[in-house]
Computed example of a mutant assay.
Amino acid sequence: MPQFTVELNVNGAASDVWALLTDDAFLEDLYRNRLQYVQWSVTERLTAPEGDLIRRVALIPPMNAPAPVRKLLGSGFRETEESRFDDKQLVWSWRRIPSTMADKIKEEGRVRVEAVPDGSSRLVAETTIECKVFGVGGLMESTAEKHSRHDWETLGEALRLRLAADAS
């Protein structure tokens, strides 16, 4: 079960990074145009009584996976992402629920944004991936980790570009 952390240095204040991470239009542009997801759409967004932001998103990721993984997941593969931003702890928790084998595939994580002394920020994304599928679980986990790392790096690039544009 891979557990990994990606740290991204971002050229903006933590509050500006959080503003973008909770901006549905920014994230839709990221997923649809930069990451080539077929679908990224918010199906539910609400504020909990304690102030937390709760969001549910329908996703259809690009199927850039080895043939055995694509065959196992099927052509209609999609995911639902359930997430919660704790505005007191400043932590975003999320989990993805696949349309296929939801009892065997787990992908979840937490995101923090830390202030850096120079006025920039560091986004820290902790991810856990687990695929309990006989024979191909390891291949599925390594493929999912590769895609997840790519998605985080692309997010970091998009944040840096947007924050630089907003600062000028």
Rank of each mutant, 00 (worst) to 15 (best):
T43V: 15
W94D: 03
A67Q: 10
Q39L: 14
W92A: 07
Q89P: 08
L27P: 13
Y37N: 12
P68S: 00
M101F: 12
E81Q: 07
T22L: 14
D24K: 09
L35R: 04
T127D: 02
N64W: 06
A102F: 09
K106V: 08
I60E: 13
S75G: 15
D86Y: 01
D29P: 07
V124A: 00
S121R: 04
D103A: 06
L59W: 08
V91N: 05
T47P: 09
P117E: 08
A58L: 13
G51L: 01
D29F: 12
V116T: 05
M63H: 00
R84N: 01
E81K: 03
E126F: 12
S120Q: 02
R34Y: 06
G109K: 05
P66S: 04
V116Y: 07
K88Q: 11
A102H: 09
E126L: 07
P62Y: 01
V113K: 04
S99E: 06
L30R: 11
A115C: 02
A115E: 07
Y31T: 13
A48R: 09
R32P: 01
I97K: 00
A58Q: 14
Y37H: 10
F77V: 08
A67E: 12
K71S: 14
I97W: 01
P98R: 04
R110T: 14
E28Q: 11
S75K: 13
L123R: 10
R122G: 05
R45N: 14
Q89K: 11
L90A: 15
E126A: 08
L123W: 15
A25H: 15
K104G: 11
E126K: 00
L72C: 06
R110P: 13
A115H: 08
S41V: 15
W92P: 11
N64A: 13
